[in-house]
Design a protein around this nucleic acid. Structure first.
Lengths: 138, 138
DNA sequence: ATCGTAATTGCAACCAGTTGCTATTATATA
DNA sequence: TATATAATAGCAACTGGTTGCAATTACGAT
């Protein structure tokens, strides 16, 4: 189901601003930042306000159309249909690789059993050292 | 070894501002936020600037005296000597509980073997639903 | 004890993101 | 098609955090 349909079903209105944002997210399979989106919108809808952008992104997240992750104090958004995967972010070169493994299922079980805590573990950002930077530092 | 000693050994100067910040961190075993620290400093050293506080915290992190974690777009600092543990943050009530388990060792192994990625996994913030909020929502 | 200098501070401006408010607008209904 | 109204957009002010710069200061060498 498309993002627009979901928003309408939830009783939200489809404004030109929202249409553009949703369009950009659909055309853009990979991760996007609010900044990226804002500079795209400046070419298509000059005058659009950043608070509109952030509020729309929050709305889309709340509606499950988009997943919001954080890394190093700022936010990244993914189209939810991409499927759940995690991101390995190198703390030296900054490069990111995806990993689609179901890595955290055992951790989830431990937390549920011992702490009664139901962990989210969606689109985790894992910082560390990538193989290239590891070799360089040796 | 004390934080001041470490800073001196690294060739950094001990200023009154830094002395106060280090003192607060030593007296305060649990997590602290920059805001907390800033409002403490306002009583002891009026006029101290927030950029000094943030720069000192970054310095202490770089020197390994303090660990910086992020949650929901803002930062939390821990005295490094507390030992490594993780935090379970409830996305509903916001409460945090510590968990000292060596939860991620198996995940670390998988990432190292399959991706050549050396994950950090120190002071992870795990968001989810705590047992109390889980019961309420049922 | 004084001096030279590199490190550090405070400042002001900035960045990403948030919020309360008022004016505008999408949409359901008649 | 016109209208009522709740949702929304834009605005301006704000928050937490960062940065470049000029003035100050800690501290090693003399």
């Amino acid at each position: 189901m498309s993002c627009s349909t979901i928003l309408k079903q939830k009783g939200y209105k489809m404004t030109p601003q929202r249409r553009l944002i949703v369009e950009y997210i659909h055309d853009n399979q990979s991760h996007l930042t609010a900044d990226e989106l804002i500079s795209f919108l400046e070419t298509r809808a000059p005058g659009i306000n950043k608070s509109t952008v952030y509020r729309t992104l929050d709305l889309l997240e709340e509606s499950g159309c988009v997943v919001k992750s954080e890394i190093d104090g700022h936010f990244i958004y993914h189209h939810a249909e991409e499927g759940h995967h995690h991101h390995l972010v190198c703390r030296v070169c900054g490069k990111t690789q995806d990993c689609n493994e179901n890595l955290f299922s055992s951790v989830k079980d431990v937390l549920a059993n011992r702490y009664g805590f139901q962990a989210d573990f969606k689109h985790i950002m894992i910082t560390g050292l990538c193989s290239a930077c590891r070799k360089k530092s040796r």
